[in-house]
Amino acid sequence: MSLANDILQYVLGGLTMGGIYALVAVGFVIIHNVTGIINFAQGEFVMMGAMFMVTLTGIGLPAPAAIILSVILVMVVVGLIEVGAIRSAKRASPVSLVIITIGISTVLRGMALLIWGTNPYKVAPFTEGGPIHIGGASIVPQVLWVIGTTAFVLALTFFLFEYTYFGKALRACVVNKYAAQLMGISPGKMSFFAFIFSAALSALAGIVFAPITFATYDMGLMLGLKGFVAAVLGGLSSTPGAVFGGLALGVIESLGAGFVSSGYKDGIAFVILLLVLFLKPGGLFGTSGSKRV
């Protein structure tokens, strides 16, 4: 294999991981924008998506039904969490709420351990077939599912926020929560929606990702952190920034793992996080805090 082929292979692998990171990162951004909370349980939403998929395909459900049902189940669980743990503590400061999300993540991981145990599970790819060759690189068909799903979901998110009335109301809440409230837009309702929508994105990420790797009860921890790094890279409040951050992180990690050492793969993500926080704390796409009065 030539160097060019290697690079192509790494970039494709990186974009696949990057798509997953992007979905998780967009989930972070949506919740952060609407509620001001950084939801550290985001990775656990990914894990739940993958694990429900494992169980549902395990009992013989066809893949499309299992996918839809898994997403719905994760949305229900997260909806309950939002009402039970976030909304009931609404007088708490954002920092306290962030700590609550860390607690939620630990609880979810613990429950997953009790339900599914420590065994890694394999999920069948959505479509059968051998590797596809592109140039000098080869990929498994599931990669196309990951990339396709990511693109589709992100397009849907964009459409929702830019072109629907409800999306505009959500954005109004992001731009000026006080004024939005004066229009009769309920911040509680918007927070609820942000959580379940973001949960759906993360669940989908877990579901399409599961056939590529093994699904385990603790897979959410690292995916959540990587998604967070991607979101910070993009400025934490910008959806396109989060997508870029996710893809960039995936590719950099993959190239780093390929050319340096795969042992440093996770380290690279956190070095990037530190560099961004030191050098450009607003993120690569972050806007400055100034605002026209």
């Binding site: 009335y165 505009k168 109301a169 954005r171 109004a172 731009v175 000026n176 006080y178 004024a179 939005a180 004066l182 229009m183 009769g184 837009i185 605002k291 026209r292 009065v293």
Partner: peptide, 21 residues
């Protein structure tokens, strides 16, 4: 509200529509 507090990254039309939320 005081200081107007329009939704500054949304269009004029969207601001008006959201008023009728």
């Amino acid at each position: 509200p005081e200081h107007r507090q329009v939704f500054d990254s949304l269009s004029v039309l969207d601001n008006l529509r959201l008023g009728a939320y």
